[in-house]
């Protein structure tokens, strides 16, 4: 087994546990960063170079920064668990461990051998005779660009429209409109003046 895979898998699992188990949400966010960087390293091991770097730029470098911004603006207190919550926690975690213990042998039985021809047989159902001669494509920027802008062009444009919709939505949701009274309310979910937090 590959030593690098063991190291990165350990980083991924430990930091995923850190996201779930750490009390302080800022610590959870940093554990998430560590998790994403570990996953990016595994992408690099799987020959997905472009995705590894984009994972760090987009996920670890933008999304979690946004989460950190929100965490810092909402100065929240870290509370200890109550007793019924602790029971709930342990029950759910035991069920999760049981689920993992059940599914991992099944995965190993079906996908254990690293054989592209065998995987292709399962995936496409075609004859395995000519499938082993499939050229392996590396995930370089050039290769992904070729596929992205020819076969998946419509999806690419639709994704850009999605991002623009999300941008407009985020701006609208956090927009504050000052009404005639001179105090500012937000045009978000609540418009009841008695319960709106003024700032």
């Amino acid at each position: 087994m590959n030593l690098l895979f063991i190291i990165f898998a350990a980083i991924v699992v430990v930091s995923a546990l850190g996201v779930v188990l750490l009390r302080n949400p800022v610590h959870s966010a940093l554990a998430l960063v560590s998790n994403l960087v570990g996953v990016a390293a595994i992408y690099a091991m799987l020959n997905a170079h472009f995705l590894a770097v984009v994972q760090i730029i987009v996920y670890a470098g933008a999304i979690v920064v946004l989460v950190l911004f929100v965490l810092m603006l909402l100065n929240m207190k870290v509370e200890a668990l109550k007793r019924h919550e602790k029971i709930f926690y342990t029950t759910v975690m035991l069920v999760a461990v049981a689920f993992c213990a059940a599914i991992l042998p099944i995965l190993h039985q079906f996908f254990g051998e690293f054989n592209p021809a065998a995987s292709l047989t399962i995936a496409s159902g075609a004859a395995a005779s000519g499938a082993a001669a499939l050229p392996r494509v590396e995930g370089t920027v050039e290769a992904i660009g070729k596929v992205l802008f020819t076969r998946y062009l419509f999806l690419f444009e639709a994704a850009s429209i999605l991002i623009m919709a999300a941008l407009v939505g985020a701006v609208m949701l956090s927009h504050r409109v000052s009404n005639a009274n001179g105090s500012s309310v937000n045009s978000g979910p609540s418009t009841d003046p008695s319960t709106t937090v003024r700032s």
């Binding site: 991924v12 995923a16 595994i42 799987l46 599914i103 051998e113």
Partner: peptide
Amino acid sequence: PLSFYLALSAIMFVI
């Protein structure tokens, strides 16, 4: 083998 990556993915998903 592929199953190790899928196992890691399953564990992450469950967590």
